[in-house]
Design a protein around this nucleic acid. Structure first.
Lengths: 234, 234
DNA sequence: GAGTGGTCTAGACCACACT
DNA sequence: GTGTGGTCTAGACCACTCC
């Protein structure tokens, strides 16, 4: 249940005037919505701004607020593999290949802002959709952040584990995407021929204070996976 | 010059309290900023929200507003190739390979929301950074949107041309990224061996009303180009 | 000119962090 | 408890679109 009025208004406006509408349909005016829902116009504006930020409506000064219509993939958001695969209508699963503690080393130390000798926990996992391998993922975490994590179930959602067990909340992530080919040993795990094309994604996840929490390198098979995202101008 | 107070406040706050600061430094309180700049607290909040959206500060309820420090690549924004290459400190240029009008066909018609017979203008360009080929780009536009475009200079920024000459403003774009290998004929144009890995980006750009303006398929050489973007959670 | 969204003010109270 | 950011109200005026 929404705790704030603007969240409530947002959902009521969405259900009443946005969902199932074609594009370009005008919503009631902000003043009319304020009266309809018995709130101040500023609260309505807060709710509409949220809908606009999610790409569900657009506003034209002097004219009105209008529906966008069938939504363009709205993945401005960071989603975990688990959420991502579920949203594509498939069943995610994970196979843990190895889990160990080691010194960070150069690249990981730089990504996590720790010294090269700092111990990190490194998980290597194959992630599957509908029981079919989609990617190999190597995740590194500061060992000090996640005591006794090796005793946990490491085949579920890592973000859920970080948040539920350790109170570590990922706020955003910088991702670098490159194109590469799979090595023979990786090819076997992914079930593709050696030298098949693949997407490599290097991701550094940080909390709200910009402290690095996770560094992950993922190798996705190109024949089964593509990255979709929406970018805005201005 | 900013026309609105919140834009002015935003810049003054940024210059005074954010630029050149390390991460985690507290800004003055919203009430203090309102007094300092002689505006209402709501106006300060508007300005701070803008800085927060750009990833320059973060806010913690009950605690304060803090600097993020060295900025994580802030490419939540859609940038043209021209802007992108310039921001990496290189000099962009373009070589036009072909420019012609043809029926949209199936894939392009779907992307641009027109019938398969609708005429589209199709530009094939090699884009270079520091005179080195970076990608091959095939851009399709509705011919009705861009009359006489074949007479224009097609080796500059297309977004500038669309906006300046035709009043078409790109608001956002959906991008789909896949990994592939280059065909022999493309290899020659890109200056890489055949079957070298490459990133394919398919982009549909739309205006504020979500009307498709441009559909572009770009092939980037993997050894010289990677995609960086930041995603947020929540 | 009428009506729309955009900006701004003045003030109140709430939820949360810190000590 | 004190102080912070978060929410919300009531009202005014401005900039723009559309007729």
């Amino acid at each position: 249940m929404p705790r704030h009025k603007h969240e409530l208004i947002r959902e009521r406006v969405r259900k009443t005037y946005v969902d199932d509408q074609p594009g370009g349909v005008a919503l009631p005016t902000e003043r009319a919505l304020a009266e309809e829902f018995g709130v101040n116009r500023a609260t309505v504006r807060h709710a509409l701004s949220s809908l606009e930020a999610d790409g569900l409506v657009y506003r034209v000064q002097g004219a009105g607020t209008f529906t966008v219509g069938q939504t363009i993939a709205k993945s401005l958001k960071l989603t975990s593999f688990t959420e991502d695969i579920r949203s594509r209508g498939m069943v995610p699963s994970t196979k843990l290949l190895s889990a160990r503690e080691r010194p960070a080393g150069d690249a990981i130390g730089r990504a996590l802002h720790v010294s090269t000798a700092e111990p990190v926990v490194q998980l290597t996992r194959v992630r599957l959709a509908n029981a079919e391998p989609m990617c190999i993922e190597v995740v590194s975490l500061r060992a000090a952040d996640v005591p006794d994590i090796l005793a946990e179930d490491l085949e579920g959602s890592l973000y859920d584990l970080l948040e539920g067990r350790y109170g570590l909340m990922v706020a955003r992530a910088e991702q670098v995407v490159t194109s590469t080919v799979v090595e023979p040993e990786q090819a076997e795990m992914l079930g593709v021929p050696a030298l098949a094309p693949a997407l490599q994604i290097r991701r550094t996840s940080v909390d709200a204070r910009s402290r690095p929490l996770e560094y992950a390198v993922s190798l996705y098979r190109a024949d089964r996976y593509e990255i979709r995202f929406t970018v805005r101008r201005d």
